[in-house]
Design a protein around this nucleic acid. Structure first.
Lengths: 271, 271
DNA sequence: AAGTGGTCTAGACCACTTT
DNA sequence: AAGTGGTCTAGACCACTTC
């Protein structure tokens, strides 16, 4: 099964063992100056990612073993291994020695803290209580459309909720989601669902968040925030504006969180 | 050569190969629950880290090639490679194809943005101007001592400064450093030094920050902050309390930054 | 005992940089 | 041409989990 890489551009083979010339995917070509090679393991990684995205292997499920994937793609186990190593580093899959490799899911305490960075100043993190304030469909304002890569006026789902820790309202959150991706999303469904919202998105709407980018600022509590968080107007609050992405770096959520940081803090590790 | 791992002992040999000891796995056991073995590449990684810490290879310098290290440690190149892979992932070294592997340094734009997360809302990041307000030696307050793993009352260096972007004061920062590690640190040295403070610490005091943990809150501008940042008292500001660590996870800096987020934001990527 | 991921080796060749 | 990191292979064995 293939050994070196010179030549051998292959045929029905899903990957390009060859090197110089054409081959799978790759970009431009056509006399281009840079054929934009990608290493074999990157191509394998892309193929696996495709299977994840298409739902061939669903969150929580076991994916085929390294040996099987190697045989399927006609490459060595080491190459598959390196591809999966990167996917594991990006939290798309989780390896478990002796058991296999599983598709990551938001239905886990582990994945939980990746996206909720607010920690109590003392004690261990609790599961917040969740109160839905409002759910509606609307046309995307220009700013929302821009960040979600939609056209201004496209349908979006708007959600407003308050999260409390030990009975103390702490987070006021607004979300905007592309209407097309979240058609059946209703207030009832949100209220009855227990657990992290990303788990609901993943299970019920097939949209899995894999990466996010946040911009954080300090703001003053306006009348609304003051009311929902039970603080005086003008109280300093932390504002986190998040854009979340799914496979293919597609933006699929805009979230604006207002955090009361009197007894909590936003935890961040620089490494 | 050499194949198994397990155990730790050996003689003049820097790593523990050999020792094909008793039967695999279980063995008598009963007593020792965990022999605390570590894979060969982890041991190599530890040895390389030691050389970095001891200054055998200084920031910015080239470390020996993979082939040479493999020969020195009497392991295969692949094993050295895996060790260096992890060090590169932790930003302790940087690989450059065709040239070699270099010790990371803070004297680089690249390392710069790892620890300064405040970005302008529009436009590209600028180099801030730096104004030293105060430098003094003092005894560590209880809280500072606790976070720096010192004894209350131990000597610390205290620094207060303001950083401005395009002439606008934006960051008010206080630092506490262990007195023993920063003996010759004076206001003059700080003022005359151009570039990131971590570069000075690294070059002049041999202390390299490799990791940090931040807790972020929203606060109200008090009289002092209002004065230095040229805002009204009560203005909401972002407060980032950072503890930085050097090799061996030793805490060596406490930093409390007050950020004006009117035209800047704290950028954070969740992945 | 069989299957899975994890470690280690040895050798080949590729891509990039410098001499 | 020589040296360095980067990719790929093939095979061996280890550690963990399940049957």
């Amino acid at each position: 099964m293939v050994k070196s890489k010179a030549m051998n551009s292959a045929s029905s083979n899903p990957v390009n063992h060859g090197t110089p010339p054409a081959g799978t995917g790759a970009s431009g070509s056509a006399g281009g100056p840079s054929p934009t090679f990608s290493p074999l393991y990157q191509q394998i990684k892309a193929l696996i990612t495709q299977s994840l995205q298409s739902g061939e292997w669903k969150p929580g499920e076991l994916i085929p073993s390294e040996v099987e994937l190697a045989s399927r793609f006609k490459v060595s186990q080491g190459t598959v291994r390196k591809a999966i190593d990167e996917l594991a580093a990006e939290n798309l899959v989780m390896r478990r020695q002796g058991k296999g490799t599983f598709v990551s899911t938001h239905h886990e305490a582990r994945a939980h803290f990746r996206f909720l960075r607010l920690m109590p100043d003392e004690g261990v993190p609790h599961q917040p209580e969740n109160k839905i304030i409002e759910v509606k469909r609307m046309r995307a304002p220009a700013e929302v459309a821009r960040l979600l890569d939609l056209k201004s006026g496209d349908a979006v789902v708007y959600i407003k909720r308050v999260m409390s820790f030990d009975g103390a309202p702490t987070i006021l959150e607004e979300l905007w989601l592309p209407g097309l991706l979240f058609k059946g999303l209703t207030a009832e469904r949100l209220v009855e669902y227990k657990g992290p919202m990303y788990g609901l998105f993943e299970s019920e709407f097939g949209t899995r968040m894999i990466r996010a980018s946040e911009k954080i600022r300090a703001v003053s509590a306006d009348a609304g925030a003051a009311q929902f968080l039970n603080v005086a107007e003008g109280t300093p609050l932390l504002c986190a504006e998040r854009v979340s992405f799914t496979y293919g770096d597609k933006a699929v959520e805009l979230r604006r969180g207002i955090y009361l940081t009197a007894h909590h803090h936003y935890q961040n590790d620089l490494s």
